[in-house]
C-alpha cells in the first residue's frame, strides 16, 4: 500500500508465555481494542515499526504530489485546474497530518524527510510511474486513491491513537479524490474517440501498478504477522487486493472500457473476480529504485528541500529576532 513492505522489527510474534509482563499487558490492551497513546509504554519494536510505516505513508503522500502535479499547468479547464490543484494540495495536507502523527513517537519531520531524500526510507511504488496523458489524472484519482482508501479505511481503527486520528481525517478527504478521478475519466471515456483512447491507455498502464500497491502476495509477505498482532496492519495484502479488484472491475465495465487484464473472470464459487497477478519482478525492481521515475521523483524532492533551505532558515531567524527583541523590551 502507501506503506508497502514495512519491515516489522519484531522477529516472530511472541506467544503470551514468551512476553514480559509489560509486553503482555500491552498486547492485552491492543486485543481489547484500546488505543495506544504517545506517552504510553510501548515495546521499542512497536515504536520503530510504526515510525517506518507512518513515515513511509507520509512520504508517499508527498512524492505522490509529483505525478499529479505534473498536469496542474496543463489542466484543460479552469474548473479541472482548480479541482486538481485542490486535490494535490490535499496530498500535501495528508503528508503533513501523517508526519505529525509520526512526530508523536519521538522523531522529527526533518529527520524523516532526510531519510526519504537519501534513500533510507521508501515510498509507495505507484508514484514511480509516470502520468502521460490527461486521463491519467482521472485514473490516478479513481484507481490509486481508490486503492488507498481500501487500505486506509480499516487503518482508522489502528491501535496507535495519533495514526488512527490522522487516518480519519485523511479518509474524509480521500473520497473526494476518488470521486473527482472517476468523474474526470468518465468524461474521457464518454468523450471523443481520442479521449476514449486516452482513457483506455491510462487504465491499461495503471492497472497492474495499482494492484502492486497492496504489496507482495501473502505467501511472500514476511512482515505481516507481527504488524497484524499489533493492529497496525488490519488486513492481509491479498484480502485488500481482492477487495479492490471486486470493486473496480464493474466500474471499468460501466465506463465502457476494455478490462486491462484479459484474465479477469467472475468466479461464482469464490464469489470474487479471478485476476492475473502483476509481474512481481517489476514490483521489486521499482522498490529497488529502478522504476520509470524513481530517480526523477527523488531529484525533485531533493531540489525542493535544498532550494527551500534559505527560506526555512530565513523565516526562523526572523522569528528568533522578534522573540529576542520582545524579551529585551520586557
Amino acid at each position: 500500500m502507501y506503506a508497502q513492505m514495512v519491515q516489522s522489527t519484531g522477529k516472530d510474534v511472541k506467544t503470551t508465555a514468551e512476553m514480559t509482563p509489560q509486553e503482555a499487558a500491552f498486547q492485552a490492551r491492543i486485543d481489547a481494542g484500546e488505543k495506544i497513546e504517545p506517552k504510553d509504554w510501548m515495546p521499542p519494536a512497536y515504536r520503530k515499526t510504526l515510525i517506518r510505516q507512518i513515515g513511509q505513508h507520509a512520504h508517499s503522500e508527498i512524492v505522490g504530489q509529483l505525478p499529479e502535479g505534473n498536469w496542474i499547468t496543463r489542466a484543460p479547464t479552469l474548473e479541472r485546474k482548480a479541482i486538481l490543484l485542490a486535490k494535490v494540495q490535499d496530498e500535501a495536507g495528508h503528508g503533513l497530518y501523517l508526519y505529525c502523527a509520526a512526530e508523536t513517537l519521538g522523531v522529527s519531520r526533518d529527520d524523516l524527510t532526510e531519510m526519504l531524500l537519501d534513500g533510507r526510507m521508501k515510498y509507495s511504488s505507484i508514484f514511480n510511474y509516470p502520468t502521460l496523458n490527461w486521463s491519467d489524472i482521472g485514473a490516478v484519482g479513481w484507481l490509486v486513491d481508490g486503492a488507498a482508501i481500501i487500505n486506509q479505511v480499516p487503518l482508522q481503527r489502528t491501535s496507535f491513537g495519533p495514526y488512527a486520528r490522522a487516518m480519519v481525517r485523511v479518509c474524509k478527504e480521500e473520497s473526494f479524490h476518488a470521486r473527482q478521478g472517476f468523474d474526470a475519466i468518465r468524461k474521457m471515456a464518454e468523450g471523443t474517440p481520442a479521449q476514449k483512447k486516452m482513457a483506455q491507455d491510462s487504465v491499461n498502464r495503471l492497472w497492474f501498478p495499482a494492484l502492486m500497491m497492496f504489496g507482495p502476495p501473502d505467501k511472500d509477505s514476511v512482515h505481516s504477522e507481527q504488524s497484524m498482532a499489533w493492529r497496525i496492519k488490519m488486513n492481509t495484502n491479498d484480502e485488500l487486493r481482492q477487495k479492490f479488484v471486486d470493486q473496480t472491475v464493474p466500474q471499468i465495465e460501466f465506463l465502457g472500457l476494455d478490462l486491462p487484464d484479459p484474465g479477469t473472470k467472475w468466479n461464482e464459487e469464490r464469489g470474487h473476480y479471478d485476476y492475473t497477478d502483476p509481474d512481481w519482478s517489476e514490483f521489486f525492481d521499482v522498490i529497488k529504485g529502478n522504476g520509470p521515475c524513481n530517480v526523477d521523483r527523488l531529484a525533485a524532492r531533493n531540489k525542493a528541500w535544498d532550494d527551500g533551505k534559505w527560506v526555512r532558515d530565513g523565516l526562523l531567524a526572523h522569528a528568533r529576532k522578534k522573540a529576542a527583541a520582545k524579551v529585551a523590551a520586557e
Binding site: A86, Q89, D90, G93, L96, Y97, C100, E103, R109, A166, R169, E173, L315, L316, H318, A319, K322, A323
Partner: peptide, 23 residues
C-alpha cells in the same frame, strides 16, 4: 484538530488557517 510547524505564533495561526480550515 492536529499539529503543524511554524516559525512563530503568528505564522502558526496563518498556517493553521491554510492547513486545517480548507473545508
Amino acid at each position: 484538530v492536529g499539529s503543524l510547524h511554524a516559525p512563530d505564533a503568528k505564522m502558526a495561526i496563518k498556517n493553521a488557517r491554510d492547513v486545517y480550515t480548507r473545508r
